[in-house]
Design a protein around this nucleic acid. Structure first.
Lengths: 191, 191
DNA sequence: ACCTGAACACCGTTCAAGT
DNA sequence: ACCTGAACACCGTTCAAGT
């Protein structure tokens, strides 16, 4: 890559991160190019699709999550590992509004630039779930896909203004549905 | 309303229903007008916003759901009423892809054409939940807003190609999290 | 090699002009 | 009253022309 191209590349990524933080995952590509002081066509040659841009934006985060799963697997009991990883992934997908739809569709499209990283995260979660299930601490009638779906749903909820404030509470509710023996499920019988 | 206007109105609604069934809630307004054989401006004078169009499209369904809640309230025990209403609303929001985002934002905007009907559905659900809670059959640490959020999340999931097939299963998982005494929660301890 | 402006086919909004 | 085409400001895609 030529020196000017490399400079454009990293500058575009930096600007894109800011715009996406403001406008979410469906931010205007033109707006990103505009703020970077570069032609739209230049942005699109570096990142031919929105997925390609997000692959570059998110790869580090997603790889960290995959690795985190491996660490938790050895350092904690299966149910704790599953729950603390779950919360971490949810926190991540909630931090970029709209990113969850992008990831969900990338996971279905082997040609997507985001496909590989999404699959890695997905199977890291599936492993954690399997371990907890084999111990009997997670419900046995769900699989990695269900786990990914629930995480995605919580990410989507956080992006809806009316639901954003309930994110943590609903996360708790759903995790308590995944575990067979939730630590405390906050259910108090009325009178 | 003039005769030709009235004819346009009902024809537009009919066409819109078809287009929305195909393309979801973010269907192109232009496309609807085009298929109706009418100018885009004509569509927009009948329905000045997308919300206005959907208010007309969905009012009957949403009012039916509100009424259904009242019926179930008298004909069934609180927990059964809540669950069977929940499933019915979920089935509805899953039938129009993307409609759930529209409803969620309408519920936050008193000026939206969909606001009143959404609020009615919302509070009908809150009533059912309260009854079940006062009986001790639904978890006490959630409110009508949480219920609406969970329904919306399930509606959103059904609109994502990768998750659509899991809709029923995840509905079951979530309802079992709402009830304090799920009829059968499908959790088998693995030795 | 890399960048860029311009043309293209879309979108929803607005409005003056027609009947 | 109601309809309509056209102009407008956006969007992402594509490509010939520049350095």
């Amino acid at each position: 890559m030529r020196a000017d191209a490399r400079k454009n590349y990293s500058h575009l990524l930096e600007v894109a991160r800011g715009v996406v933080a403001e406008d979410g995952a469906d931010a205007s590509m033109r707006e990103i190019a505009r703020r970077a002081g570069v032609g739209l066509a230049t942005l699109l040659r570096h990142f031919p699709t929105r997925e390609a841009l997000f692959e570059a934006l998110l790869r580090a985060n997603l790889e960290a999550l995959t690795q985190k799963a491996a660490e938790l697997e050895t350092s904690h009991p299966p149910d704790e590992a599953l729950m603390s990883w779950f919360r971490e992934v949810v926190a991540f997908v909630q931090s970029y509004s709209g990113v969850v739809a992008l990831m969900a569709s990338a996971h279905e499209d082997p040609d997507s630039a985001l496909y590989a990283t999404c699959v890695a995260v997905h199977s890291a979660g599936a492993r954690l779930l399997l371990h907890a299930q084999s111990e009997g601490t997670a419900r046995s009638d769900m699989d990695g896909g269900d786990l990914f779906a629930l995480i995605s749903a919580l990410g989507w909820l956080a992006g809806q203004p009316g639901f954003a404030t309930r994110g943590d509470h609903l996360s708790h509710l759903i995790t308590s549905a995944i575990l067979t023996n939730p630590p405390e499920n906050n259910v108090k019988k009325a009178m």
